[in-house]
Write a protein that binds this DNA or RNA. Sequence first.
DNA 1: TATTGTTATACTCTATAACTATA
DNA 2: TATAGTTATAGAGTATAACAATA
Lengths: 159, 159
Amino acid sequence: MSERVWSSSVDRLMATDLARDVEFLNARTRVIGTVITNRHLGDHGLRVRSYSVLSLACSGLRPTQRELAEFLRLDPSQIVSIVDDLESSGLVVRETDSTDRRSKVIVGTSHGARLHREASRAAARAEDEALAGLTTDERDTLRELLHRAAFASAGESAR
Amino acid sequence: MSERVWSSSVDRLMATDLARDVEFLNARTRVIGTVITNRHLGDHGLRVRSYSVLSLACSGLRPTQRELAEFLRLDPSQIVSIVDDLESSGLVVRETDSTDRRSKVIVGTSHGARLHREASRAAARAEDEALAGLTTDERDTLRELLHRAAFASAGESAR
DNA sequence: TATTGTTATACTCTATAACTATA
DNA sequence: TATAGTTATAGAGTATAACAATA
């Protein structure tokens, strides 16, 4: 069996209502997951947000900055600095959309694609570490339910 | 059936690997959930973090600030300012632990308990809104899996 | 010596408004 | 008139170190 890893202070409070609150559980899971993932991605000079943008840039779908912002739920102005960093590192390039010269399409370079392949393995290891304690089936169920929650929640189109 | 609420830009990118990444899905779900929950809690002058502290203070378990920090995965110094705010609003009080005078136990006042009852209903409505699209059974499953992920992930006891 | 709460500080993340160039 | 990207700025959240009181 797995050993106890948190102090008694923590499981003493697990009897509270808050410990059954999805918003709280989501927040706590995310803090833990982000710390672990940033640590793994840090070996490749990336963090969660920059990895996400690089991943979409290397998907072949040629997203615009506006699409990145909506998908990642970040403000368009935040995308600017993330793309600036990735571009100055030679991982992605901005291409002006030929059909709408206002839009800029973000595409990964060959260097970016190579780094993304390495980083995605690091991200997978981070996920594996963060979800230790869940079986493979349970991880798939969690993924499916989070996917629905992340994309099906109506009405909250923006801030 | 529910109508489409996100633009085509978003579901165009749902075919990417990132859309199956638990860390990303968790982040997106949390952003949506936090926005919704903060909006509901704002009617009572609370936000997610202050509501969490108030909730534990009103649990009857008399948590110390250190316990709050570990359970909520916040730095002890962050607890200070949250408790300062709640205390200056008359919602909680600091009581010096009689068995260890270094520790301060945070307990809700009667005013705090009353506000917490109202706020917990607001939080429940927020959860209901954030998880629209999931059935009751699915919400319970999500709650259970997040609970395991939030508390079972070993090794990441602190920074 | 070690721990609890506290203060101070810096850094990251998030939110808002205004500007430019294109449509 | 509206939209994509950009800049600037402020606020919220997070991380780190040092200190006083107590153990």
